[in-house]
């Protein structure tokens, strides 16, 4: 009962947009008798907390969990946006598993992207973090500057900029021309186009770099002092001290970046004009999924593709956690 009484107005407030006034604080501040019901006690304890969380809850249930459940249902239908969905059982999943050449092609492109972009990006981020960790003057400025690409990263403007850089008469080829090299149109050549996307991804090394930087600061400096007294070179210190102590951070970054790389969409969409071309060389899995859903109106099939991606990402993440205990060192 109490649930309903308090639940309803809360929804109304959220539906009317962010509250403009703080809820009225009662004038007479007298200690009320302790409620006896379980709900009453819980409400008095953490009710206001949940109230503040409401916008997030509404977002999570309405915009994330709700659509996810619906998409799971739709993945067993032939929904085409205009007609009401018909149940087709496992047909969509069977097609994905047995007779969809584009599934294999797009998964191949995505795996290639993940395999190269994640390690390269992490290595680059770690390198920059190590350099910045030497206590340079103006560190906050550098940190901000290096972080900028990550903020701009997935935007349309950057993808358009990339098109300009790597087009046949773009900046990259102008520089190559100085050395007498006539470069191809990198972004529209099937052998190179995926690499322009990988470079774009590496360029957005900001957020792993910040996390590495925080990790590096945690390493006690006396360890390095002791090591250098014993005559260990900088490289040896890096391999024997920095890397092992940083493995939890590396692990975290690797998992997060891998998930991100599987979900990459915008750059490929903009750079190939939504086609994944030339010849499917930039057909990311997400782009294929988008084409099926919004290009060819196969919502049901696209939903099935989305759930397969969820499973694949989950498997990769589980695999990372399973292998973690062999190489991640936690302080104890």
């Amino acid at each position: 009962m109490g649930n309903k009484m308090t639940g309803r107005p809360a929804v109304a407030i959220a539906a009317a947009g962010p509250p403009h006034h703080p809820p009225q604080v009662p004038q007479h501040r007298q200690r009320k008798p302790q409620p006896t019901s379980w709900f009453g006690r819980t409400w008095q304890g953490s009710g206001p907390g949940y109230m503040f969380l409401l916008p997030w809850f509404i977002g999570f249930f309405g915009l994330t969990l709700g659509p996810a459940i619906v998409s799971f249902y739709l993945s067993f239908t032939d929904f085409d946006l205009l007609r009401s969905p018909n149940w087709v059982g496992m047909a969509n999943y069977v097609r994905i598993a047995t007779s969809d050449p584009k599934f294999a092609a797009s998964m191949g492109v995505t795996l290639f992207f993940v395999l190269f972009s994640v390690p390269l990006k992490l290595a680059f981020a770690l390198g920059v973090a190590v350099v910045l960790n030497r206590g340079i003057r103006g560190l906050p400025v550098y940190r901000a500057v290096f972080y900028l690409p990550s903020l701009l990263g997935t935007s349309v403007a950057i993808a358009v900029l990339w098109r300009q850089l790597f087009a046949s008469d773009g900046l990259v080829n102008s520089i190559l021309a100085e050395f007498g090299i006539q470069g191809p149109s990198w972004i529209s050549h099937p052998s190179y186009s995926i690499w322009t996307l990988i470079i774009l991804s590496i360029w957005q090394f900001g957020s792993p770099m910040i996390i590495f930087l925080a990790g590096l600061r945690q390493i006690p400096t006396d360890m390095y002092e002791a090591a250098s007294l014993d005559g260990a070179s900088k490289l040896r210190q890096f391999i024997k001290i920095t890397l092992p102590l940083l493995t939890p951070v590396i692990f975290f970054n690797a998992v997060v970046q891998t998930i991100d790389a599987f979900k990459a969409f915008t750059p490929a969409f903009i750079i190939s004009g939504g086609t994944g071309g030339p010849i499917n060389s930039t057909l990311f899995y997400t782009l294929y999924l988008y084409q099926e859903a919004f290009g060819f109106f196969r919502m049901g099939y696209a939903s099935a593709l989305a759930w397969v991606l969820v499973v694949i990402i989950a498997l990769f993440t589980a695999f990372s956690f399973l292998t973690a205990r062999f190489w991640v060192h936690y302080d104890d």
Binding site: R8, P9, A12, A16, H21
Partner: peptide, 21 residues
């Protein structure tokens, strides 16, 4: 502590709903 009078809460909620509609 910060507690909300249930009646005031209901009233403000209903008000917000009415304005919104």
């Amino acid at each position: 502590t910060f507690s909300i009078n249930r009646r005031a809460f209901l009233a403000s909620g209903a008000g917000a709903l009415a304005v919104g509609m």
